[in-house]
Each structure stands twice: as structure tokens, then as C-alpha cells.
């Protein structure tokens, strides 16, 4: 059994196959460039005020929301609506926010040139998608 396990371990490592917990060990294997892309989840309340969804104040279950938000750009609209409804529900339940709309931005940052305060160029947010919250 151990020999078979070692063989599979080597095959996964050699060919970069992901079969968790077996893995291709690709962490940080793609070279980064000076352009960094991330996701930003913004909620709009009933008065039209926009604010970033403070994920750090939500339960652990929402910890990876930014990653899921990025993946959801390719999802069918119905699944995205369900995702937005969960964020809106969490914002209401844990933060007392009345969310009418959820907006997900793809934020592109140019890491160089920079000063002590960070990159010289401000990050550029582009709306990836938006969906309605449960209150509308």
C-alpha cells in the first residue's frame, strides 16, 4: 500500500496533478508581475450608499468570499444571485446593513512605481458584475 501511495505521490508531483490531499505543489509557482488583480465586494444600501463588505467582521464561513467572488464572474446569473443573496443576508444579520445591491469589482493595481505610502497609481476598479440583494 505504501509503495502505491509513493508512486501516486510522485506522479502527482511530477505532472502537477491536484487530487487533494495529493497535490502538484503549485503554490506560488507562477511568476508574478507588477500588475496585481484582486476582487472587491461592495454593498449598496437602500439609500444608495456604497461601502466595502467588511469580511473580517463576518463569520469564518465567509472568509474566502473574495476568491469565490472572483470565480463567480464565470457562473450562471442564477448562481451568482444566490451568492449575492448570502452576502446581503450576512451583512444584514451580522452588521445590521440593509443591502439592496451587491457589486463585485475586479481591482487592478500597478505595484510599481511606488512611494512609502504604497503604489503611486491608484488601484483601478472595474465592475465585474452586480446582483440584487434580498430586500428588493
Amino acid at each position: 500500500m505504501t509503495l502505491s501511495f509513493l508512486a501516486i505521490f510522485v506522479v502527482c508531483g511530477t505532472f502537477g496533478i491536484e487530487a487533494w490531499p495529493l497535490t502538484g505543489w503549485r503554490l506560488f509557482s507562477r511568476a508574478r508581475t507588477e500588475i496585481a488583480v484582486s476582487s472587491l465586494i461592495v454593498v449598496e444600501d437602500s439609500e444608495g450608499k456604497l461601502s466595502e463588505l467588511p469580511l473580517g467582521r463576518l463569520p469564518l464561513q465567509f472568509r474566502s468570499s473574495r476568491l469565490v467572488a472572483a470565480h463567480a464572474a464565470d457562473w450562471p446569473a442564477r448562481e451568482r444571485e444566490a451568492l449575492c443573496a448570502e452576502w446581503a443576508r450576512a451583512a444584514d444579520e451580522y452588521l445590521g446593513l440593509d443591502v439592496s445591491r451587491v457589486l463585485v469589482f475586479q481591482v487592478t493595481s500597478k505595484l510599481w512605481p511606488r512611494t512609502d505610502d504604497g503604489p503611486t497609481h491608484p488601484p483601478v476598479p472595474v465592475l465585474a458584475y452586480s446582483c440584487r440583494g434580498p430586500s428588493t
Binding site: 511530477t14 505543489w25 503549485r26 511568476a31 496585481a36 493595481s109
Partner: peptide, 28 residues
Amino acid sequence: YFFAGLAKIALSGPSWVLSGNIRWALYA
């Protein structure tokens, strides 16, 4: 550790070391 190194060579080649990759990862 070996396969982690191998993946870096396979997916990025020498640019993983020479392109400023670590700089950008650390700045980000």
C-alpha cells in the same frame, strides 16, 4: 519541497528567479 521547486521551473522557468517575481509577490 522538490516538487514545489519543479512546479516553479515547469510553470515559470528562469523568470521565477530573475523577473522580480518575489518583489511583486511581496509588494502585493
